[in-house]
Design a protein around this nucleic acid. Structure first.
Length: 444
DNA sequence: TCTGGGGTCCTAGGACCC
DNA sequence: TCTGGGGTCCTAGGACCC
């Protein structure tokens, strides 16, 4: 490979940009509490079953990485500070981040809170080169958000993303750097460079697929580039095989998609102490249903398909789902379906995780929840639950709107359902007096 | 070292319709 | 009476991403 640094690419050579904020959650925590600066800081679950979501560079020096169990991280770094995570705060920063990208071009696609792909082609008429765009972005993110980031430029998403990974501190390959914190893989280097990467570096190759590929004698991207696609398809499925072979050859047809429709939404929780009784699981169903119902209404959508997922202490998971002839966004309606699904599962093993998900969305205004004249089969829990759910959805519509309005004005904890309070061992009286508006008091 | 919580997509089989 | 093949919807599970 050549030792001279690459020249600045043209728009034709590098139309796609990828930005990735460095150690995002941890960096936000340090900004909000400067006394943390220079210390090994993580965001994640501190409890026994917690994992690390984001680690500062100090923490990484000790070998701490995201997705690592917190107990392991603590072992590696006894002084590690693990913070619980304030996702509302990260969202605020994320919005600002997107705002900065949007000022450059509206043709961008967020990936989680801390990454963005942007299509730079609309900048042609302004005569902006990709490196200028990357510098501008880095500068503004530094000044306005006080965050560091890495930028990758490429002729497609594949190369842009692989490049931004190379821009990170401690990873830098100087042959690829075109500016401070900006990486581009030139056409001359492209083929040789990607060939030398391990298969695990490719998008879509996780631990399982990597193991399968290794068993097939495929360790490097160059091995994948030569493999027979049909043979690979027998082991990985048609779609995965086609994608990986294309990536290995540097081909990636994915476009920057500005508006992605939300397809599912849900809430799950791993319990510090596994649930052992049906009653506990049913009670958690109602709690999850409340979270999901509010999220659905926030999106102005109703869901026809409700799924529950349970994970047991042996880490085995199982899911059950039910599609309704109508959409729901009411807490009691969701609870009714979710509890019926849970009741259909053998709960002889302790439950460490319960998840409740909603999908098959309809616009709220398109939903047709007619009253049913179907005869419900006696003893069929699912059908009974569906009819129960229909009644809740129809009958509580105006009450639900009123409660949402109160929550919007006075905070999420301002109103609750009496049965929830009872299940938490609280007395209804707490809703009166000083708690009438929730802990924060009335907002504005 | 033992795995969170927010999502996405793919696969495969069965039911049902034409 | 027994049969085919394609399309669509639903369910369940698995893997991946940040």
């Amino acid at each position: 490979m050549s030792n001279s640094p690459a020249e600045s690419p043209s728009l034709e050579e590098a139309p796609i940009l990828h930005v990735d904020l460095d150690a995002f959650f941890a960096s936000v925590e340090i900004l909000d509490d400067p006394s943390l600066r220079g210390k090994p800081v993580c965001v994640g679950g501190a409890a026994e079953r917690g994992v690390i979501a984001s680690a500062s560079y100090e923490a990484r020096r000790h070998g701490v990485k995201s997705a690592m169990p917190s107990v392991v991280a603590r072992r590696l770094c006894p002084d590690l500070i693990i913070l619980p995570g304030r996702f509302d705060r990260y969202e605020e920063y994320s919005h600002q981040f997107h705002g900065v990208v949007n000022d450059l071009t509206p043709d961008y696609e967020p990936l989680g809170l801390d990454e963005v792909f942007a299509d730079l082609r609309s900048l042609r008429r302004l005569g902006v080169r990709p490196l200028d765009a990357a510098r501008e972005l880095r500068g503004r993110i530094r000044e306005e958000l006080q965050l560091e980031c890495g930028v990758g430029l490429g002729r497609n998403k594949l190369f842009a993303k692989l490049a931004s990974k190379q821009s990170k501190p401690h990873v830098v390959d100087h042959q690829l750097v075109v500016g401070e914190g900006v990486v581009w893989v030139s056409p001359e280097l492209e083929e040789r460079w990607i060939a030398e990467l391990p298969v695990r570096a490719l998008w879509g190759v996780g631990p399982q697929t990597a193991t399968k590929l290794h068993q097939l004698g495929l360790r490097w991207v160059r091995d994948l580039a030569k493999v027979d696609e049909e043979t690979l398809a027998r082991h990985l499925g048609a779609a995965m095989a086609a994608t990986l072979v294309a990536y290995a050859r540097g081909e990636d047809e994915r476009t920057v998609t500005v508006h992605r429709e939300l397809k599912s939404l849900g809430h799950d929780q791993t319990f510090a102490i596994s649930l052992t009784s049906l009653e506990e699981v049913l009670s958690q169903c109602r709690h999850h249903a409340g979270v999901v119902a509010r999220a659905l209404r926030g999106q102005g959508r109703v869901a026809r398909t409700i799924s529950v997922v349970l994970r047991f202490d042996d880490l085995e998971s199982l899911s059950r789902s039910q599609t309704l002839p109508f959409g729901i966004d009411d807490e009691s309606a969701l609870t009714s379906v979710a509890q019926a699904l849970v009741r259909s599962v053998d709960l002889s093993r302790p439950v460490r995780l319960l998840g409740l998900y909603a999908s098959s969305f309809l616009e709220r205004s398109d939903n047709q929840v007619q009253l049913s004249f179907d005869v419900v089969t006696e003893g069929d829990r699912r059908n009974e639950a569906i009819e129960q759910s229909r009644e809740y959805q129809v009958s509580s519509a105006s009450l639900r709107d009123a409660l949402d309005d109160i929550r919007r004005r006075y905070g999420a904890s301002s109103v609750g359902v009496a049965s929830d309070l009872a299940s938490q061992g609280l007395r209804i009286e707490r809703q009166r007096g000083s708690h009438a508006f929730g802990p924060e008091g009335p907002v504005k």
